[in-house]
């Protein structure tokens, strides 16, 4: 694997994992515009654990995820009191607060960032990405996934059907935080350097866009969305400025052409009837 290809694949893997973290929350109908904050928590947890304690990589990554999950579990209770625009703003605020705390903490390197003294190969990133993808697909295919999608569509009716809406939403938010933490841990270990300025509002916005453009109705959405927006600019080999300009144009166009995302239930149904005529699709 060439160095260039390895680099692209590693970024792709991290972006896909990150996208699933936001997707899990979005699948229950909640928009999280604070992804960067949870990613930063995982990245800094990982940096400290490997620098100060010297835990093996697998444990370090596990703890990044657990910490991300635990913090978002605690945050979920106040945040999920909010609805609609307020939830978007609350999660956005959390990411800004996390970045602010890191910038003010000399222990975390403040504005100069942190160097991590262990590193991982691209393969590790890809293996973790595949595990996250498979687990997400698995979860969405169970009754838990069904209940999540029901809460997304109509909270009140899901409640009357006996779905514990609050447990589903808090669980999804915490799991999303854990996966975001994991992606942050991988980022830290792969690049060997982290700084607060990287985990900014743009990162949160981009990852939410990957998910919304990919589509929140099925587990294919984040995979396609993240791959599309990571690989297309690489394939076009254009400068950063043009890349984001085109990203913007694609977003506006997508919202006009396919406002519910690239992959929708109906589209999947059409494809599967064509591929397996006569077989019923759940």
């Amino acid at each position: 694997m060439s160095g260039y290809l390895a680099g692209v694949l590693a970024i792709l893997g991290i972006n896909i994992i990150f996208a699933y973290s936001i997707y899990i929350t979005a699948a229950t109908g909640q928009l999280n515009l604070g992804g960067a904050g949870f990613q930063a928590i995982g990245a800094y947890a990982c940096a400290i654990l490997s620098n100060e304690i010297g835990l093996p990589i697998s444990l370090t990554l596990m703890f990044s995820a657990i910490l991300g999950g635990a913090i978002s579990f605690l945050i979920a209770f106040p945040v999920l009191r909010t609805k609609g625009v307020y939830m978007v703003l609350a999660t956005f605020a959390i990411a800004e607060i996390v970045a602010g705390i890191i910038l003010n903490s000399s222990y975390l390197g403040g504005p100069t960032g942190m160097i991590i003294n262990t590193y991982i190969e691209t393969e590790v990133v890809l293996i973790v990405a595949i595990i996250v993808i498979l687990l997400s697909f698995y979860m969405m295919s169970t009754r838990i996934g069904l209940a999540m999608r029901a809460v997304h569509d109509d909270e009140a009716v899901a409640d009357l059907m006996g779905v514990n809406k609050r447990a589903i939403q808090v669980g999804a938010f915490a799991l999303g935080g854990a996966i975001a933490g994991l992606s942050g841990g991988l980022y830290a270990l792969y690049f060997g350097f982290i700084e607060a300025q990287y985990f900014n509002a743009n990162i949160s916005i981009f990852v939410l866009l990957y998910v919304l453009i990919g589509g929140t109705q099925t587990a294919w959405g984040p995979l396609l969305g993240a791959s599309f927006f990571t690989l297309i600019p690489e394939a076009l080999r254009i400068g950063d400025d043009w890349r984001f300009f085109i990203f913007g144009v694609i977003i506006v166009a997508m919202m006009i052409l396919r406002p519910e995302g690239i992959v929708t239930r109906d589209a999947l149904d059409r494809v599967s009837t064509r591929l397996f005529p006569g077989k019923s699709n759940v």
Binding site: V88, I205, F247, V252
Partner: peptide, 10 residues
Amino acid sequence: LVSSLGFLLI
């Protein structure tokens, strides 16, 4: 909201 994020980038 998503479209406006697109325009922000543009």
